[in-house]
Measured scan of single mutants.
Amino acid sequence: NQASVVANQLIPINTALTLVMMRSEVVTPVGIPAEDIPRLVSMQVSRAVPLGTTLMPDMVKGYA
Protein backbone atom coordinates (compact mmCIF):
# COMPACT_ATOMS: atom_id res chain seq x y z
CA ASN A 1 0.00 0.00 0.00
CA GLN A 2 1.31 3.38 -0.99
CA ALA A 3 1.32 6.28 1.45
CA SER A 4 -0.26 9.55 0.33
CA VAL A 5 0.20 13.13 1.50
CA VAL A 6 -2.40 14.16 4.10
CA ALA A 7 -2.95 17.63 5.60
CA ASN A 8 -1.62 17.80 9.17
CA GLN A 9 -3.63 20.99 9.81
CA LEU A 10 -6.09 23.29 8.07
CA ILE A 11 -4.21 24.77 5.10
CA PRO A 12 -5.83 28.04 3.93
CA ILE A 13 -6.23 28.76 0.21
CA ASN A 14 -3.06 30.07 -1.50
CA THR A 15 -0.84 28.99 1.42
CA ALA A 16 2.67 27.83 0.54
CA LEU A 17 3.16 24.30 1.88
CA THR A 18 5.76 23.52 4.55
CA LEU A 19 6.85 20.17 5.99
CA VAL A 20 4.86 20.63 9.22
CA MET A 21 1.61 20.96 7.24
CA MET A 22 1.91 17.48 5.71
CA ARG A 23 2.15 13.88 6.84
CA SER A 24 2.15 10.55 5.04
CA GLU A 25 -0.65 8.06 5.53
CA VAL A 26 -2.05 5.06 3.68
CA VAL A 27 -5.49 6.25 2.59
CA THR A 28 -8.20 5.52 0.04
CA PRO A 29 -8.46 7.00 -2.50
CA VAL A 30 -4.73 7.42 -3.10
CA GLY A 31 -3.59 11.03 -3.43
CA ILE A 32 -0.22 12.65 -4.11
CA PRO A 33 2.48 10.05 -3.24
CA ALA A 34 4.29 10.66 0.07
CA GLU A 35 7.68 10.58 -1.67
CA ASP A 36 6.70 13.84 -3.39
CA ILE A 37 6.55 15.75 -0.07
CA PRO A 38 9.98 17.41 -0.63
CA ARG A 39 8.77 18.62 -4.05
CA LEU A 40 5.58 20.07 -2.54
CA VAL A 41 7.40 22.37 -0.10
CA SER A 42 6.79 26.03 -1.07
CA MET A 43 4.07 25.11 -3.61
CA GLN A 44 0.70 26.78 -3.00
CA VAL A 45 -2.63 25.07 -2.46
CA SER A 46 -5.38 26.12 -4.86
CA ARG A 47 -8.13 25.75 -2.24
CA ALA A 48 -8.52 25.40 1.51
CA VAL A 49 -7.50 21.92 2.65
CA PRO A 50 -9.09 20.75 5.94
CA LEU A 51 -7.16 18.76 8.55
CA GLY A 52 -6.94 15.09 7.59
CA THR A 53 -7.71 15.68 3.90
CA THR A 54 -5.71 13.74 1.32
CA LEU A 55 -3.89 16.10 -1.04
CA MET A 56 -4.85 15.48 -4.66
CA PRO A 57 -2.82 16.76 -7.65
CA ASP A 58 -5.46 19.37 -8.54
CA MET A 59 -5.22 20.94 -5.05
CA VAL A 60 -1.59 22.07 -5.49
CA LYS A 61 -0.70 24.79 -7.99
CA GLY A 62 1.96 23.63 -10.43
CA TYR A 63 2.02 20.02 -9.22
CA ALA A 64 0.06 18.19 -11.93
Rank of each mutant, 00 (worst) to 15 (best):
Ala3Cys: 05
Met21Pro: 00
Thr28Cys: 06
Ser46Cys: 04
Arg39Phe: 06
Arg23Lys: 09
Pro38Lys: 12
Asp36Leu: 15
Leu17Asp: 00
Tyr63Met: 06
Gly31Trp: 02
Asn1Lys: 11
Ser4His: 01
Leu55Met: 13
Ala64Val: 15
Val5Arg: 01
Ala7Leu: 03
Ile13Trp: 08
Thr53His: 13
Gln2Trp: 14
Tyr63Glu: 03
Asn1Pro: 15
Thr15Phe: 05
Leu51Thr: 13
Gln9Ile: 09
Ala34Val: 08
Asn14Ile: 03
Arg39Tyr: 14
Thr28Arg: 07
Val5Cys: 04
Met21Ile: 03
Val41His: 04
Gln44Glu: 07
Gly31Pro: 01
Asn1Trp: 12
Leu55Pro: 01
Val49Trp: 02
Ala16Lys: 08
Ala7Tyr: 02
Asn1Phe: 10
Arg39Gly: 07
Val6Gly: 01
Asp58Arg: 07
Pro50Thr: 13
Asp36Gly: 07
Gly62Thr: 06
Ile11Thr: 02
Leu17Gln: 00
Ser46Pro: 03
Met21Ser: 05
Val60Lys: 00
Leu17His: 00
Ile13Pro: 10
Ile13Phe: 08
Ala7Phe: 02
Ala34Gln: 06
Pro38Cys: 04
Val41Ile: 11
Ile32Arg: 00
Gln44Tyr: 12
Leu10Asn: 12
Asn14Phe: 08
Ala34Leu: 04
Gly62Leu: 10
Ala34Tyr: 06
Thr28Ser: 09
Ala34Thr: 07
Pro50Asp: 07
Met56Ala: 06
Gln2Leu: 15
Pro50Tyr: 09
Ala48Ser: 14
Met56Thr: 12
Arg47Pro: 02
Ser24Asn: 09
Ser4Cys: 04
Gly31Asn: 01
Ser24Cys: 04
Pro33Glu: 06
Arg47Ala: 08
Gly31Ile: 02
Asp58Tyr: 08
Val26Arg: 11
Leu40Asn: 00
Ala34Asp: 09
Ala7Gln: 01
Ala16Gly: 09
Arg39Ile: 11
Ser42Val: 03
Gly31Cys: 03
Val45Lys: 00
Asn8His: 15
Val26Pro: 07
Met59Asp: 15
Val60Tyr: 01
Thr28Pro: 01
Pro29Thr: 06
Ser24Ile: 08
Met21Gln: 06
Gly52Tyr: 04
Val30Asn: 09
Ser42Trp: 07
Ser42Ile: 03
Met22Glu: 00
Gln2Tyr: 15
Arg47Gly: 06
Ser24Thr: 14
Ala3Phe: 13
Gln44Trp: 07
Val5Asn: 01
Gln44Gly: 05
Val27His: 05
Gly52Phe: 05
Pro33Leu: 10
Met43Ile: 05
Lys61Ser: 10
Val26Cys: 05
Pro33Ser: 14
Arg39Asn: 07
Gln9Thr: 12
Leu40Asp: 01
Leu40Ile: 06
Val60Asp: 02
Ala48Gln: 13
Ile37Met: 13
Val27Thr: 05
Val41Cys: 03
Thr53Ala: 15
Leu55Lys: 00
Ala48Lys: 14
Thr53Val: 13
Ile11Met: 04
Ala7Arg: 00
Ile37Lys: 06
